[in-house]
Computed example of a mutant assay.
Amino acid sequence: MIKVGYLLSYDYDLIFTSINQIYEEADKIFIAIDVNRRTWSGNDYELPLSFFENIELLDYKNKIQIYEDNFYISELIPIECETRERNLLLKKMGRGWLIQLDVDEYVYDFKTLTNYLNKYWYLTLFPKFTPIVFKGKLITLFKQTEEGFLYIDNDEKFPFITNLNKYEFTRYNTKVRNHFVNVNVVHQSWARTDDEIQTKIKNWGHRDDFNTKNYFEFWKNISSSDYMNYNNIHPINPEVWNKLHFLPSKSIDEFINTYSIRNRQILINLSKMKIFKSMVKIIIGRE
C-alpha cells in the first residue's frame, strides 16, 4: 500500500493544496496533530472546527485518519520533537511505501510516482532485508509577489519515501541505500505573508539554526524586479539556494499547473542488481 503522512501545525490550511495533489492515488492518508495544539517550540496555536469539517468533505473515499498525540516534549529542542513525531507517525502508518510530506509540499502528477512505487512492491514485503529511502527534488518557493513567485530550481534533494519504520533524524536514514527518484516536489516554504513567516520561524524545527530576525529582514527586501541580483541565499547552507527564478502566477495552484506542464515527472529506475547485492550484504551481516 502507498500511505502518505502529514505533520500538522500552525500552517494547517496549506494541507488542502497538498492533499488535492495526492488524494486519488494514495491508499491511506494520516494527519498527525498535537493533542494540546502546541508547536515543537511549545507555543499554542488554534485549529478551528471548520478544519475537520473541510477534511470530512474532502475525504469522500474515507482514506484520511486523524492521529492525535502529545508531540511537544519540553526537554527536547524543536528538531528533536520533529524527529520524535515523525517516528511516532511512521509506526502509526504501519507497513508499505511510507511517504511523509509537510503540509506545504506538493507532489504534482502523483500517479506517476505511485505507478513507480507499485513497480517495486516487493521491497515492502521484508523491509528488514530491502531497506531503502527514495529522494525527490525540491522546487522551493521563496517569495510570492503581486506578479508571481520567486523560486529555487536546482538539485536540492530530500528524502521523503521509505519502507522502514524508523528515521535516524527528521526524514533521514543515512545507513541504508538512498535512491534519487527525480520526482519534483513543489515546496511553498517561504512563499507566505509576513505574519505567516514570523510564525514559521518561531515554531519550526530550524528555529535555533540561524539568525531568523536578520534573515526575515533580508527576505522582505527581495522583489520580482531585483531577484536576479541575489545568489547563494539559503539561511543555513547558502549555496543550496544558488539562484532565484521567477514564474508569473496569480495563485499557488496556477504555479503548480504551469510548472508541471513545463517539467514532467520523469523518474529514475532502480537497478535490480544493486537491490540484490544490498540484500545479500544484509543477510550475511556485512556492511
Score class of each variant (00 low, 15 high):
Phe255Arg: 11
Glu85Val: 11
Ser224Leu: 07
Ile31His: 06
Ile161Met: 04
Phe246Ser: 04
Glu287Gly: 02
Ser18Val: 11
Asp11Arg: 09
Val186Glu: 05
Ala26Trp: 06
Asp208Cys: 07
Ser271Leu: 13
Cys81Phe: 05
Ser249Asp: 03
Pro131Ser: 06
Phe16Thr: 05
Asn115Cys: 11
Asp109Pro: 00
Phe210Leu: 03
Tyr10Ala: 05
Asp13Asn: 14
Thr174Cys: 07
Ile236Thr: 04
Phe180Cys: 05
Trp121Tyr: 13
Phe110Tyr: 07
Asn231Pro: 02
Leu14His: 13
His179Gly: 02
Glu56Lys: 10
Phe71Ala: 13
Lys166Gly: 03
Ser18Ala: 15
Leu125Arg: 14
Val176His: 05
Lys119His: 02
Thr174Ala: 10
Gln65Leu: 08
Phe255Ala: 09
Ile266Leu: 15
Val4Asn: 02
Tyr122Phe: 15
Asn182Thr: 08
Asp34Trp: 06
Leu141Glu: 06
Leu7Thr: 08
Arg262Val: 02
Ile256Pro: 00
Asn214Arg: 13
Phe142Asp: 08
Lys157Arg: 14
Leu125Trp: 12
Tyr215Cys: 01
Ile31Trp: 06
Asp195Trp: 08
Met273His: 11
Tyr172Cys: 01
Ile33Asn: 06
Leu123Glu: 01
Asn237His: 09
Leu101Val: 01
Lys175Arg: 08
Glu24Val: 12
Leu141Trp: 09
Pro48Ala: 00
Gly148Ile: 03
Tyr67Thr: 08
Asp226Leu: 03
Ala26Asn: 05
Phe210Asp: 02
Gln65Phe: 10
Asn36Trp: 03
Glu53Gln: 07
Lys166Ile: 07
Met228Cys: 03
Thr145Phe: 10
Phe110His: 04
Leu57Gly: 04
Asp208Tyr: 11
Tyr108Gln: 00
Ser278Ala: 04
Arg37Ala: 00
Glu146Cys: 06
Tyr108Lys: 02
Met1Pro: 10
Ile268Asn: 15
Gln144Met: 13
Ser9Pro: 08
Leu141Tyr: 13
Leu123Asp: 01
Trp219Met: 00
Phe276Asp: 03
Lys166Glu: 12
Thr258Met: 00
Leu76Phe: 11
Val181Cys: 12
Leu164Ser: 05
Leu90Lys: 00
Val103His: 01
Glu147Ser: 14
Tyr67Asn: 10
Gly136Pro: 01
Ile132Ala: 04
Phe276Cys: 10
His206Pro: 05
Ser41Glu: 09
Gly42Ile: 03
Asn184Gly: 04
Tyr67Pro: 09
Arg171Leu: 02
Leu76Met: 10
Asp13Ser: 15
Trp219Asp: 02
Arg38Tyr: 04
Asp195Leu: 11
Asn36Ser: 03
Leu58Tyr: 00
Asp208Pro: 05
Ser223Thr: 15
Val35Thr: 12
Ser189Gly: 05
Tyr122Pro: 03
Asn237Glu: 13
Asp153Pro: 07
Asp34Cys: 06
Leu138Met: 15
Lys175Trp: 09
Thr174Asn: 14
